[in-house]
Nucleic acid binder design. Structure first.
Lengths: 205, 205
DNA sequence: TAGATTGTTAATCGATTAACAATC
DNA sequence: TAGATTGTTAATCGATTAACAATC
C-alpha cells in the first residue's frame, strides 16, 4: 500500500478534509490549492504535493471539485465508513466525550463505556450504559472493535492499554496525561492539552 | 530572544518535561539522553541537540540530573510561574475541563468561566461561577488574562476568538472543531480528536 | 484564445543522525 | 584509569518550495 507516504502528510489530510467540509457548508463547489493554503497558512505547492501522493484530483485552470475531493480524502483516510469505538473511563472527561455529538457526526460511534468504579457501573448516559471494565476484553473480541478512547487516570493508563491491546485494539486515542507503550502494529495518539499550553507559554511575554 | 529555535523543538520540550516528571515520581535522580529517547521513541542525538539550543544541562559520563533539568525546562517554557486562564463555553466539555485538576496541578488556573446561555449563567462549578459572556472583555482587560480556552460550538468560535483577541488574549487553546483565524502575535493551538482518529484509521486495515 | 491552476521536477531549505573529541 | 555520556560538528536525510510544462 501507500506505506511510503510520510506520516506528516497523512496528518495534514484530516485538516484538508475539515477545511473542505467548511467550504462546502459555505455553499462553495470549487476550490484551489491557493484558497486552501491561505485558509490554513500552508503553501499551495505543499497541498498539491501532498495530494499528488494519492492521485490526481484537480483540473488545470479550474482547481478542485470540493465534493469530489472530500469523497476521495474520505476513502484515503478510511473514513468512507463508520467506526465503532469503546470509551474507557466514566469520569468527567469520559462523560463529556460520550455526550459529544461530533464523533458520531464524523462516523465514529462510541458503542460502549467501561469503568471499574461500582458507583458508576450501571449509570445510563443517553443511549449508553456504563459497563463493568471486567467485560471490556470480551466486548472488544466479540464485536471486533479496533479503536479505544482512553480517559482513565494516568496511573491506570498503561495497565488498561495493555489489556486493550491484548484484546485486539489497534488504535488508542489517549487522553490520560502519561506516555503509554504499545507493541508494533498498534497506534497511539495522545491528546495533551498541557503540552499545547506549555508550547504557547514559551512564546508569551 | 531564542527566536531562532525551531517550533518543532519547542513542541518537544513539554514532552521531555512530562517524561522527566514521570521518572522523578519513580524515584530516579539521574537520566540520560539514551533513557529518555528509548521511553519516547526519539533518538538520543535529537534530545541532546534539542537541549543544546538552550544551554548545557548534563554532565559527560553521567547524564542529566532530573530535578535540575526539570527546573531549567520549566524556566525555558515559562512555566516556572502560574498562568491564569479563562474558559469560554459551559457545555459538557467546558464542565469537564473546569473540573479537571490537571490544569491547576501544572500551574494553569481557570479563573473564570463564561457562557451566553441564561440557563447556565450563575451555575456554581466547584469554586467557579458561570458568568455572562458579556463580561468577558472587561474581565480579560482588568485581570490581564492572556490565555483562553475555547469550548464553544464551531459556528460561534471565530466571533468569540475575535472578541478575545481584541480584549488582549494572546494564546487560545481551541477545542471548537473549526479553524480560527487570528492576527500576528496571537497563538492558537487546536485540540482536534477527530483529526487524530482519522490519522489512525488511515493505518487501520 | 487568454487566463488560470494543476501535477511534477529540481532546487532549496531545514531537521535528524552519526560520529567523536571532551570530560566527568 | 576505564567506561560512559555529553555537546557539537559535519554528513545525511527528508520535507518544502519554486518554477514551469501541460492543459482545462
Amino acid at each position: 500500500m501507500n506505506k511510503d507516504v510520510p506520516d506528516i502528510v497523512i496528518a495534514r489530510l484530516p485538516i484538508y478534509l475539515r477545511t473542505l467540509n467548511l467550504l462546502l457548508e459555505d455553499g462553495k463547489e470549487i476550490t484551489s490549492s491557493q484558497e486552501l493554503g491561505s485558509i490554513l497558512g500552508i503553501s499551495p505547492a505543499q497541498i498539491r504535493k501532498d495530494l499528488s501522493h494519492f492521485g490526481e484530483f484537480g483540473k488545470q485552470g479550474t482547481g478542485y471539485n470540493i465534493k469530489y475531493l472530500i469523497s476521495q480524502l474520505r476513502k484515503i483516510l478510511h473514513v468512507d465508513r463508520e467506526w465503532d469505538m469503546i470509551l474507557i473511563g466514566a469520569g468527567a472527561l469520559g462523560h463529556a466525550m460520550a455526550h459529544y455529538p461530533g464523533f458520531r457526526e464524523q462516523g465514529f460511534n462510541i458503542v460502549a463505556v467501561f469503568d471499574n468504579d461500582p458507583s458508576k457501573i450501571g449509570q445510563e448516559w443517553s443511549n449508553l450504559v456504563v459497563r463493568d471494565a471486567k467485560e471490556m476484553e470480551q466486548f472488544v473480541a466479540e464485536k471486533g472493535i479496533r479503536i479505544a478512547i482512553l480517559a482513565v487516570p494516568a496511573r491506570a493508563a498503561q495497565a488498561v492499554a495493555d489489556r486493550l491491546v491484548k484484546a485486539g485494539i489497534k488504535a488508542i486515542l489517549n487522553y490520560a496525561p502519561t506516555i503509554i507503550q504499545v507493541p508494533e502494529g498498534v497506534i497511539v495518539e495522545h491528546i495533551d492539552p498541557i503540552a499545547h499550553l506549555q508550547y504557547m507559554t514559551y512564546y508569551l511575554e
